[in-house]
């Protein structure tokens, strides 16, 4: 039996931590990230690089592709904004008030994570179709949800709902009640307290939640294809465009679209991350 356990060097001047192995864990993290993230991404870029610049341009920036990017980013942005508003209110209610069934509702919030998003897409499409539960009331008013951008936004709101709630909730829980009392005693109205004291305090978490929702919405596929109808130049999203290119066996063209999607997403996420960091400058 060989001794695999060695005692830490006693004469070491290095600062000792309770948990050992910075080198080991960092190496592990980089290995995992490489296998899961960097190599597939590189493969994607490599595949796209098999196209000549003009071919790439034709595939990635066709009118149909431009329209698909617009639908994707526009709907994702609106959905992330709506989720931010709904999410903050939900988190507020869950933290501040005691009511019957609170725990049940709290666990319900995570459901969109567990549910196959295609199910959500199908259910929404059915409900908002001309003869569906909601559709039969809305369509006579000229409000079309199924096969429109409105429908896409709706399912994206559903899919991204948990993010903002789950990022803002813990912060609200640790927020000192005295802050509100202090603001009020200094003359602030409820609204001023909310906008000048509470909102700035939860803003960084809200921004994180927003970024997660937004990113999730950009990549969402399953739910959208069922409700959008995938009409070119109208409700076709970028991920669907990629799939249809794949079905045409145009693999390189598909990755060209993917590359554009990745680059735009990355730029947006970096910007949001920067904002978030700036927002936390006081810590």
């Amino acid at each position: 039996m060989s001794s695999a356990i060695s005692s830490p060097p006693s004469g070491s001047l290095k600062k000792r931590r309770v948990l050992p192995g910075l080198g080991l864990s960092l190496g592990y993290s980089i290995t995992v990230l490489t296998l899961l993230l960097f190599i597939p991404l590189a493969a994607c870029f490599a595949k796209a690089a098999t196209l000549t610049p003009s071919q790439f341009w034709a595939a990635a920036w066709s009118e149909r592709a431009q329209s698909a990017y617009f639908v994707t980013f526009f709907c994702s942005l609106i959905a992330a904004i709506i989720d931010s508003i709904i999410g903050v209110i939900l988190a507020w209610v869950l933290v501040r008030y005691q009511f019957f069934g609170k725990r049940f509702i709290d666990s319900l919030i995570d459901l969109p994570f567990a549910l196959p998003t295609a199910v959500a897409g199908l259910v929404y499409a059915n409900m908002y179709a001309e003869h569906g539960w909601f559709g039969k009331w809305l369509v006579p008013w000229g409000i079309h949800v199924a096969f429109t951008k409105l429908g896409i936004i709706l399912v994206l709101v559903f899919v991204g709902l948990p993010f903002v709630v789950r990022t803002v909730q813990p912060l609200l829980e640790t927020l000192d009640d005295d802050l509100e009392d202090a603001a009020e005693l200094l003359g602030a109205t409820r609204w001023q307290t909310l906008s000048m004291v509470i909102f700035p305090a939860i803003q960084p978490a809200l921004l994180t939640g927003f970024a997660l929702t937004f990113a999730r919405a950009i990549g969402e596929f399953g739910s959208v294809i069922f409700i959008s109808g995938n009409l070119q130049y109208k409700t076709e999203i970028a991920p669907y465009l990629i799939v249809s290119r794949l079905e045409e066996y145009a693999y390189a063209e598909a990755t060209a679209v993917a590359v554009v999607l990745i680059v735009i997403s990355l730029i947006l996420l970096v910007i949001i991350n920067g904002l978030e960091r700036w927002n936390r400058r006081y810590d």
């Binding site: 000192d176 005295d178 802050l179 009392d181 202090a182 603001a183 009020e184 005693l185 003359g187 602030a188 109205t189 000048m196 004291v197 700035p200 305090a201 803003q203 006081y282 810590d283």
Partner: peptide
């Protein structure tokens, strides 16, 4: 209302606005 009382209040745990 406390807003109208003209009271200065100091809390045990300061209750400072940490983003300001």
């Amino acid at each position: 209302h406390p807003r109208q009382r003209g009271v200065g209040f100091v809390f045990q745990h300061y209750a400072l606005f940490r983003h300001m």
